[in-house]
Design a protein around this nucleic acid. Sequence first.
DNA 1: ACCCAGGCGGGCG
DNA 2: CGCCCGCATGGG
Length: 297
Amino acid sequence: MHVREFEVKDFSLKHTFESAQPITFCGDYDERTNSLVYTEGVHIINVMHRQAHARGRRSRIAVASKDIGYAERHFKERFRISDNLDKIYSEIDTDKFMHESIAKYRGMRLTVNDPWETTALFIISQFNNVKRIRLIAKNIIERFGTPIRDDMDNVIAKSFPTSAEIARADRADLFACGTGFRDKYLKEAAEFCTYNIDLDSLKSKGYPEIKESLMEISGVGDKVADCIALMGYGKTEACPIDVWMKRILENVYFKGRKQNISKLHEFAERRWGRYAGYAQQYLFWSGRGSLVGRAKR
DNA sequence: ACCCAGGCGGGCG
DNA sequence: CGCCCGCATGGG
């Protein structure tokens, strides 16, 4: 196990982990020590965030892993550390509600996750809640995940199963993980992603083409495709509109009047452009907690 | 008990 | 096309 430390600017591990992204469903975060453990293929990556003095925008990250070079590289990519949040904030800070959302969750970043893992998780997310998505994800990792072994050949962790591993699974066993009626979607999506489409090859394509291809997958519609484009492929112009975003946009920008989804997509694109996905993440997470929601969680 | 959750596919008009 | 409905399950 090797450790490496480096400085980051405008980053909050806590807000990023908690904001219902794939890392939220598969990683393990300890609020007391402000640290995170997650797996990536055969790698186990430990992250500790040492918060700087109050209001300091610079802070330190310590990453620990067996392959420390990979871990540092991967951490910076997954948490979009090279994004200049000052610049992004200045482009999306168009109104009071957004301004307050940014102030509340400053340092929250989008994440870039494995495309298949993102696809599977957001198929599971439909008509579901964050807590249960996490429970189901953990069950699937435990039951079908790829074992990670130490030098003594002991299994010390498991990473999210590949599409081939899910494609081989019995639907009944997927159902037993708590997927409910989504078992069929997950199984069909796994088969499609193993035999009929190469998710990794889409990385070189643009947002519209990626979204169109993703929507060929069973269980992937408009909203889930945008989530995958945003959090699986890093297309920050993608703006997923779920029940919360719909309510928030209608309440904050349309005086509570109902709007259809395509209208809301147009609105977000016109207003926030290439960073509509970032705008969405701040509105979703702050609005969910305050505006409409009755402070659940 | 009742309502809702990071929606989607299928069927109908 | 657009709209409406059912859907597993568990927590508030």
